[in-house]
């Protein structure tokens, strides 16, 4: 298996699906000739032509609207929003059309499309190039939300998202676009949506995360191991519909849970998972549900390292869950 970065794996996924299915079209700002700001679509226009890989105006509303219309016509659009922070001018299309199409057609049809977009902090992007709005999308009925944490996941999940019959918001952790390499299966490789991955089995505490932060959790785990704490680490992968059974099974085993996300805390994915565990598994809990999250402020430029959960805060969260610190 070839070694790939996350970006290479995403490119490979797009190429595999475009070669397999001529309904797949890719478009967005600078995705054609330039191959995208982060080079995810590099080489695709040369290979598949300007009709299937094309540049749009700077018009998020138009990009997402075109995606909705093309999906209505049986195509499989993969629309790129250059940074998810730029999506909001087109949010109306997402919430009013894309998310509601299956429901408001009385179930007659949906819009099978993917909105691909880099998200998250860790690249000194400041206020408008760093946000983690996954909970905002997850809050809208009718959308699926997917976030890969490794190159293999990026490929397998993106192919599944493209093949899904309903719209998927596919958020790419740009912090780890280039920094992590691993062997990625060749050809048509899929990972089913809605399934978490047990990254490491453990018995003392469950730690759930996704995206770039999963790697921070793995670093924190080195400290935990030295302290003799056995953590079960879950990579959520699909934010919605999230994998409830795997989560409950793990909590039933460990009795403790720490949820690590980089988004602001209030009404975050961590909040929803905490509520879910509290409703379904309170009898198994031996300690408080702990959330380690970003802060409830806009994303700060200079204070980024303090804003994002890091090893110290994750380890502290685990100690709180275990009742070792107040």
């Amino acid at each position: 298996m070839p070694e790939m970065t996350l970006v290479q794996a995403l490119r490979d996924a797009l190429a595999v699906e475009m070669a397999r299915d001529d309904r797949v079209v890719v478009f967005g700002e600078d995705v054609g000739r330039r191959g995208g700001v982060f080079t995810v679509t590099e080489g695709l226009q040369e290979r598949f032509g300007e009709e299937r890989v094309y540049d749009t105006p700077l018009d998020e509303n138009g990009i997402l609207g075109m995606a909705a219309g093309m999906a209505l016509m049986g195509l499989r659009p993969v629309a790129e929003i250059q940074f998810v922070d730029f999506l909001w001018p087109g949010f109306d299309v997402v919430i009013s059309d894309i998310a509601k199409e299956r429901f408001r057609s009385g179930g007659q049809y949906g819009v099978p499309l993917v909105i691909r977009s880099p998200y998250g902090g860790g690249v000194k992007g400041g206020l408008y190039h760093s946000q983690s709005p996954e909970a905002i999308f997850a809050h809208i009925p009718g959308l699926k939300v997917v976030i890969p944490a490794t190159p293999s996941e990026a490929k397998g999940l993106l192919i599944s998202a493209i093949r899904d019959e309903d719209p998927v918001v596919f958020l790419e952790p740009k912090k780890i676009y280039f920094g992590i390499k691993e062997e990625v299966p060749e050809g048509e490789y899929t990972i089913p949506l809605g399934q978490a991955r047990v990254v490491q089995e453990g018995s003392d505490v469950t730690i759930v995360s996704y995206g770039a932060l999963l790697h921070e959790v793995l670093r924190a785990n080195e400290t935990l191991k030295q302290e003799g704490i056995s953590a079960e680490i879950l990579d959520l992968r699909t934010i919605l519909p999230f994998d409830g059974p795997t989560l409950l099974e793990s909590v039933a085993k460990t009795g403790r849970i720490v949820i690590v996300v980089e988004a602001p805390r209030i009404l975050s994915v961590a909040s929803e998972l905490a509520a879910f565990v509290a409703e379904r598994a309170v009898d198994y809990l031996d300690g408080p549900i702990v959330r380690v999250t970003g802060w409830d402020t806009p994303f700060p430029y200079a204070l980024e390292p303090h804003y994002l959960p890091n090893v110290r805060r994750i380890v502290h969260g685990v100690r709180r869950a275990l009742g070792l610190v107040p």
């Binding site: 075109m66 995606a67 909705a68 219309g69 209505l72 009013s96 059309d97 408001r104």
Partner: peptide, 24 residues
């Protein structure tokens, strides 16, 4: 035939439908 309750809201999708017709 498709409508929604947002004034002018169908138009970006309508261009997408037409673009799909053109591509196909």
């Amino acid at each position: 035939f498709l409508t929604n309750g947002i004034t002018g809201g169908m138009l970006p999708s309508a261009v997408g439908v037409a673009l799909a017709k053109k591509l196909k």
